[in-house]
Computed example of a mutant assay.
Amino acid sequence: MRPFFAAALAAFALSAVPALADTIRIGTVPGGYGDSIAAAAEEAKAKGLDVQVVEFTDWTTPNVALQSGDIDVNYFQHRPFLDNAIQQRGYEFADLGVGALANVGLYSLKHKSLADIPQNGTVAIANDPVNQGRGLLLLEKAGLLKLKEGVGYLGSLDDIVENPKNLSFTEVEGPQLVRVTGDVDLALGYPHFIVASKAFDARSGLAYSGIEDKRFAILFVVKKDRAADPDLKAFVEVYQSSPKVRAVLAKAFADDPKLYALAWLND
């Protein structure tokens, strides 16, 4: 989706539903994250918290909206993504705690194993710096390529030093990877997007990341001057303690523990 179109949709969502003065507006993305925030919002009413969920269709606008004050919290990004956004845009953001850890996987609708990926095969991978690096680390873990020593999660396609199958790469915005999986030999995939799309079985991955990727747990992010806000902190506590939230997340990840983890339980 083009950035200006996504921004227009987000702006419409923000203007279409007027907020009360005491309303907590939480920006998130569709699927498991949005559904889990909505479940927590229902339970937060019992604590006197009025929560409004605002969904965005891209990974840029939620930070722009937070910076401008159009929302109070966002819940869509992990630590490396946040750190990169702060470095690139100068945001003064802080986090209030962690939520779900969505593992990533390598998926193929053409081949049954990594060994079957052909010479000169095609691979779809995320186009943003952080998630591309995460995908490359998983490809390295799977034995399909080798990266420069010490490159870490900020690696890019330029950091590939060994590519024995001469794989070629197509860069795609993360939420859209599920749409192109059938067009390539192998694709990086996000299980919750796959479950939400019903495009194919999210449990069919050929390889997955795991709890060792905890730095990629999704964060509740606020502007620094609201890091001590008791209402915002109370909402995070509701989210982390809610059985309904856990049930929603389980459904979003196909009830399969290899696809996700509740990161706050591992703090």
Rank of each mutant, 00 (worst) to 15 (best):
R2Y: 13
F5E: 10
F5Q: 08
A11H: 08
F12P: 00
S15F: 09
S15G: 06
V17E: 15
V17F: 13
P18W: 09
L20S: 14
T23I: 11
I24W: 01
G27P: 04
T28I: 12
G31I: 12
D35R: 14
I37Q: 02
A39N: 04
A40N: 09
A41Q: 06
A41G: 09
E42A: 08
E42R: 11
K45C: 04
A46I: 04
G48L: 09
L49Y: 06
L49G: 04
D50G: 01
V54E: 04
T57G: 07
D58V: 11
W59P: 00
T61L: 02
T61P: 01
N63M: 15
N63R: 13
V64D: 06
A65Y: 04
S68E: 11
Y75A: 06
F76I: 11
H78K: 03
D83G: 05
A85K: 04
A85N: 08
Q87W: 05
Q88F: 06
Q88Y: 05
Y91M: 10
G97S: 08
V98W: 00
V98T: 13
G99D: 07
A102R: 06
A102F: 10
N103Q: 13
N103T: 14
Y107K: 02
L109M: 13
K110I: 11
K110N: 14
K110D: 05
H111T: 10
K112A: 15
S113A: 10
L114A: 02
D116L: 11
P118Y: 14
P118D: 12
N120M: 12
G121A: 14
V130I: 15
N131F: 09
N131Q: 13
Q132A: 14
Q132I: 04
R134T: 12
L136S: 01
L137Y: 03
L137P: 00
K141A: 10
G143N: 12
L144V: 05
L147K: 01
K148I: 00
Y153L: 11
G155V: 00
S156C: 06
L157G: 00
L157K: 02
I160M: 03
E162G: 01
L167C: 04
E171V: 11
V172W: 01
V172M: 04
E173H: 00
E173Q: 04
G174S: 07
P175Y: 08
Q176R: 15
V180G: 03
V184T: 05
D185H: 07
D185L: 05
A187S: 15
L188A: 11
L188K: 01
G189E: 03
Y190L: 12
I194V: 15
A196D: 09
A196I: 05
A196M: 07
S197L: 06
K198F: 05
K198R: 14
F200N: 07
F200L: 07
D201F: 08
A202S: 04
R203Y: 13
S204E: 08
I211Y: 04
F216H: 12
A217D: 13
A227M: 14
P230M: 08
P230C: 07
D231R: 15
D231M: 09
K233S: 07
A234Y: 05
A234S: 13
F235L: 15
V236F: 06
E237M: 13
E237C: 14
Y239K: 14
P243W: 13
A247T: 12
K251Q: 15
F253I: 07
F253R: 04
D255V: 09
K258Y: 05
K258D: 14
L259V: 08
L259T: 06
Y260K: 10
Y260R: 10
A261K: 08
A261C: 11
N266C: 00
